[in-house]
Amino acid sequence: MIEGAVHRFGDNIDTDQLAPGRYMKGAIAEIARHCLEAVDPGFVDRVCPGDIIVAGDNFGAGSSREQAVAALLALGVSAVVAKSFARIFFRNALNLGLPVLVCPTASEIPDGARIAVDPTSGRAVETATGQQHDCEPIPSHLMAMVRDGGLLPHLEKTLRTSTNG
């Protein structure tokens, strides 16, 4: 179960907003400092570890740059719940260990609310009101990779296990 405070964004949050091109040659920490500044300059100062991003359609549109995911992880974002995701971003997120949930009613979740998300059952609940939102579940074998921190640590673990076994 993932629980955190909600930061609401609209439709078409793109990879240039998440990881602006002009900071792309820097380290992830530097890119993260500019994450979403074009749409919400105060976001990086307000966001706390564990917080959850809730957005509209087409989250992560645009580039294949993984730094768009890595910047959110560096800020401590624990999950993204959106009406829909751009396909490369969706795969990148799971590969880097960030749970991403497709939720048709995402736009009804208020900014600042606390929500608890269970990725494998696909259930998101607003803590204060008990209001429930159904998301597309993430299959448990994919969540195993996400919990390991993404494909690389997951591969390391699997390769180690197969060598030992």
Binding site: S64, R91, N95
Partner: peptide, 12 residues
Amino acid sequence: GIGATEMLGVLV
């Protein structure tokens, strides 16, 4: 199109 970690899987 794919991301870098996905490409890692392809390269391996």
